[in-house]
Design a protein around this nucleic acid. Structure first.
Length: 947
RNA sequence: GCCAGAGUGGCGGAAUUGGCAGACGCGCUGGAUUCAAAAUCCAGUGCCCGCAAGGGCGUGUGGGUUCGAGUCCCACCUCUGGUACCA
């Protein structure tokens, strides 16, 4: 029964590859290396999703293709296994997260192996492996041991940090504190989502609308001591070094925008009476612009120093440390209530909901505008963020949308200082009157000596003047914030940090790093994973043997925060190169030989954070001499999302159908009928029940009812999730791989289609029957496959296929490569004689995409060894060409006929033959030839006009 | 609102980058094979007019450049994804 049976041949070849170590990668590459990396998965309990194999198949094709072209390929796989779901599961079931994690990893491994990817499984790792996170902790020690030298723009050992003499004079504790403040890993108070009812700190994604995801309890933002990583120090390099990467412009832009560099000025506003302003500013002319903040002025950051004359009030963030100082007694209760309310809101809530209405409260205090000596009121409002710039702004309502909206709401003055000019539309008067906001560039007005100057000139001029007066200076700001690196979680890497305790067991504030030789710091055993009710991490529940450490005669308590999930995924690409090294995170020679990653493929959801964090760590490791490349990932490709099968949805209100055009969403997001306002019910309809009318789908038996036709994201709740196990069972792994590649371009979002899967399976069946005698009782070649020379036509098809498939694989255009292979099969199944040499070449071309079937056929064609390292077929250019070609003849750009001409026919000959064509003559008689266009090998176009 | 990407047959998608629009697959129609079905094989399949030869229209919409536009330019519409007061 020699039918194509993937259930039999796929496990057979997977076993063959495994027992022969076919894809074992040498420690060091040969002549040419290629490092191809997939974004490793989080091993969730749900198992592999069809989205995973999309990218994995694409990279596997690259690897198999390039191995055959002689490259030494590194293609590893691992698991990003720390994370919230395992811990949630632990809280619910009280099983240790490691147990469920390992179970999930085993399941993922089984599923990945079932798809025949050519990973070097000897290198597999999980971020939760103790041998792995030992080095994650080690890298943290490097970050802890590094400060950023702004002059050299690089990270240097903390021992090289220059200590000011006055600090040295204060003793060791002062020196240590000075160092601690400058390390790349440092401690700071940051706001966390504290949920008193659950007795635990929640991650941002666990907070929905200010309530806990579980149980809907109120969540409060409270400051908690946190570990931070000084990624902002690297902002400039993270931005600049994008230039040399082979990433899509879209991703580069996302990263650039995330870093969000802006230039402007910091300006100090005097906090005092108008009478004292003169002497204060005179002082400033002598002392200059101070680097330290004082309490007699408010420092703001602006990108529009040119609008300083238009600043009519100021706003500070509710968390600004001047709030108590600036609040007058008359305003105190109002201010306190406002700030309290703001503390309950997350950043997101402040910007969402409530129609983004601006809120704020007056402090009762005033500051003096440095350019004109005018006092202006200081407000508190949550539209100003504490974490950006200086947490305080000068408000220029005439030229900033947000300030304008706020000023209108609270009746604050609006003074225009930029004239949009006559060229602008009719609203110029409204703008100058302060009735409308204008954010563009123009000409300065109401701006003292700057009047008449263009915006672009005023900016530097005012900044320069402020600098000479000691009132301001040019400044650069980034939206990028330092990376909040600690989590109040159990299931993450413990920090290798000890907090010194005094004799009473209280922290002294001094910290020390765990010695590198004492790594790893393993996670302790906990009896249970229930929250303990304090705003402190679960590791606070650890047994004393773990929690308390004595070292050099001093007592310490371990750090109880853990690292975020990002930590382990920041550097796994390095460990794959040398996964078992117990002396170093990576051997230097191997690192130089394999880095950088030549191709990195994964979902676009990691476009910003994961890639930015990895790049940051890599740069620190580079500065400290542990890696040799500036950037980790040379080429990046983001695969598109796979949606569920297309669904048709009709809507019904009671018994009556309602057309899609008559439906809208009410303010609660419920679908209603526009006319009646009644809720409608959505009904899934079969494809056979709908028909296309114009651009839309309608019910076949009621064409006035339009229905919705779209593919949705796969989700459990929608019930449209496709399970790879089922596809492999019903169609085979090669069919799944092939289908996912045939669906469309790798980067595109595309809907799943079960009949598409059976289409490619059908192709694989045809491939089988092209070579195997499916009517015989045992597996043998079909009679048509013979040891003969290909005809010139067969050679033409073969060599064109080799050329096209090779080019398509180089471009990662897998859908068209597969189409070429289909054309080959369509041609050769019609051939009575199928030369064995052509079949051999074809099998090699097919092998990167459908490796199991290809190996089986390769064996059948008489080769005892795997084809994995067979040389890739080479095409002969001469054989791809035919001697004659068909060329269209156009009249006025419309195709009116075709002629067959020699392929190498010259321009003149081509025109001559075209003009000799009877059909053309017929069409142009009685008309004047205005022009002829002849493109050899392409077309002839005759332009005529009447007469 | 802003940013990015995309709109091509009944469906997924091709088109060597300005040169025969719709490759390849799905679906559909007809035929062969079969007692019948499945499977397989062959042929056809953008829309409209026409018995046919042939003609007209056609790549989201409207304009433009060109001998020639899916491809380039301008304006607009729709969808998808991302993002959210960063001064």
């Amino acid at each position: 029964m020699p039918r194509y049976n993937p259930a039999e041949i796929e496990p057979k070849w997977q076993q063959f590859w495994e027992s022969n170590h076919t894809f074992k990668t040498p420690e060091l590459p040969g002549a040419e290396k290629l490092y191809v990396l997939d974004m490793f998965p989080y091993p969730s309990g749900a198992g592999l999703h069809v989205g995973h194999p999309e990218g994995y198949t694409a990279t596997d094709i690259v690897c198999r293709f390039e191995r055959m072209r002689g490259k030494t390929v590194l293609h590893p796989m691992g698991f990003d296994a720390f994370g919230l779901p395992a811990e949630e599961h632990a809280i619910k079931t009280n099983t240790p997260p490691r147990v469920s994690t390992e179970k999930n990893i085993a399941e993922f491994t089984r599923q990945l192996k079932m798809l025949g990817f050519s990973y070097d499984w000897d290198r597999v790792l999980a971020t939760t492996d103790v041998d792995y996170f030992r080095w994650t902790q080690w890298i943290f020690l490097v970050l802890f041991d590094t400060w950023f030298d702004p002059d050299q723009q690089r990270g240097r050992p903390i021992a090289e940090l220059p200590i000011p003499t006055e600090i040295t004079a204060q003793g060791d504790a002062a020196v240590n504190a000075y160092r601690d403040r400058r390390r790349l890993a440092y401690q700071d108070d940051a706001l966390v989502n504290w949920c008193p009812a659950l007795g635990t700190v929640l991650a941002n994604e666990e907070v929905i609308d200010g309530k806990s995801e579980r149980g809907s309890h109120p969540v409060q933002r409270i400051p908690l001591r946190q570990w931070m990583l000084r990624i902002t120090a690297y902002a400039e390099r993270l931005m600049r070094d994008l230039d040399d990467l082979d990433w899509s412009p879209g991703i580069k832009k996302l990263q650039t925008d995330w870093i969000g560099r802006s230039t402007g000025a910091e300006v100090d506003f005097f906090l005092g009476s108008q009478a004292d302003f003169a002497s204060w500013s005179k002082n400033r002319q002598v002392s200059g612009f101070p680097s330290q903040l004082g309490d007699d002025f408010l420092r703001i950051y602006t990108t529009r120093p040119d609008t300083l004359y238009g600043a009519t009030y100021m706003v500070i963030a509710p968390e600004h440390k001047f709030v108590p100082q600036l609040t007058q007694d008359s305003q105190r209760s109002e201010v306190e209530a406002y700030c309290q309310a703001a503390s309950f809101k997350s950043d997101r809530e402040r910007t969402e909901g409530e129609a983004k209405k601006k809120t704020g409260v007056f402090t009762g205090s005033y500051a003096i505008n440095p350019v004109n000596g005018e006092p202006i009121p200081i407000w508190i409002a949550d539209y100003v963020l504490a974490s950006y710039g200086t947490g305080a702004i000068m408000a220029v309502p005439a030229h900033d949308d947000r300030d304008f909206e706020f000023a209108q709401q609270f009746g604050l003055p609006i003074v225009a200082v930029v004239d949009p000019g006559a060229s602008a539309d009719s609203s110029r008067d409204a703008i100058l009157n302060g009735d409308e906001c204008f954010v563009g560039a123009g000409q300065a007005v109401n701006s003292g000596s700057y009047n008449g100057m263009a915006t672009a000139e005023v900016k530097p001029a005012i900044t320069a003047k402020l600098a000479t007066d000691g009132l301001g200076q040019e400044a650069v700001n980034y939206k990028l914030r330092d990376w909040l690196f600690s989590r109040q979680r159990f299931w993450g890497e413990p920090f290798p940090i000890l907090h010194e305790l005094d004799d009473q067991g209280n922290p002294t504030g001094a910290i020390r790093a765990v010695d590198a030789s004492d790594l790893p710091v393993n996670l302790p055993h906990l009896d249970d994973y229930q929250p303990h009710g304090r705003p402190e991490p679960p590791l606070g529940k650890s047994p004393d043997e773990w929690l308390y450490v004595e070292k050099d005669g001093k007592k310490y308590r371990r750090e109880t925060n853990t690292m975020p999930q990002w930590a382990g995924s920041c550097w796994y690409y390095l460990r794959f190169i040398d996964p078992k090294n117990d002396q170093a995170l990576i051997d230097a020679e191997k690192e130089r030989a394999w880095m950088p990653v030549d191709l990195y493929v994964g979902g676009a959801e990691h476009a910003v954070l994961h890639l930015l964090y990895s790049r940051f760590w890599h740069k620190v490791l580079y500065d400290r001499g542990f890696v040799s490349t500036k950037e980790p990932f040379q080429k990046l490709v983001n695969q598109g999302m796979i949606l569920g099968e297309v669904e048709y949805t009709a809507y019904r209100c009671g018994e009556a159908w309602v057309s899609l055009v008559d439906i809208t969403r009410n303010e609660n997001g419920i679908l209603i009928e526009k006319s009646s306002g009644k809720a409608v019910e959505s009904v899934a309809v079969e494809e056979s029940e709908v028909t296309k009318q114009g651009d839309n789908f309608v019910l076949a038996d009621n064409p006035s009812i339009r229905v919705d036709s779209r593919a949705h994201k796969m989700s459990k709740s929608r019930g449209n999730v496709v399970n790879p196990d089922e596809i492999v069972r019903d169609y085979g792994a090669d069919a799944l791989r092939l289908y996912e590649m045939f669906m469309g371009p790798l980067e595109a979002t595309k809907p799943w289609s079960m009949s598409g899967v059976s289409g490619v399976r059908n192709f694989l069946d045809r491939v089988w029957r092209m070579i195997v005698d499916y009517r015989a009782d045992d597996i043998r070649l079909v009679d048509a496959v013979q040891e003969s020379e290909p005809t010139s036509e067969q050679n033409q098809v073969l060599h064109r296929t080799i050329a096209a498939v090779t080019r398509d694989l180089e471009n990662m255009s897998y859908n068209t490569a597969i189409a070429r292979l289909m054309e080959f099969v369509n041609f050769f199944t019609k051939q009575e004689v199928r030369p064995r040499v052509a079949m051999r070449q074809f099998v090699l071309l097919l092998s990167p995409m459908a490796p199991h079937l290809a190996e089986e056929l390769w064996q059948l064609l008489g080769h005892p060894n795997s084809l994995a390292y067979e040389p890739w077929p080479v095409f002969d250019e001469a054989l791809t060409k035919s001697s004659e070609i068909e060329v269209p003849i156009q009249v006025n750009g419309k195709v009116r006929g075709r002629i067959t001409v020699p392929a190498d026919c010259s321009k003149e000959q081509l025109l001559e033959m075209a003009m000799a064509d009877a059909r053309l003559q017929e069409l142009i008689t009685g008309k004047t030839i205005v022009k002829t266009i002849v493109v050899p090998g392409r077309l002839v176009n005759v332009v005529v006009k009447l007469q």
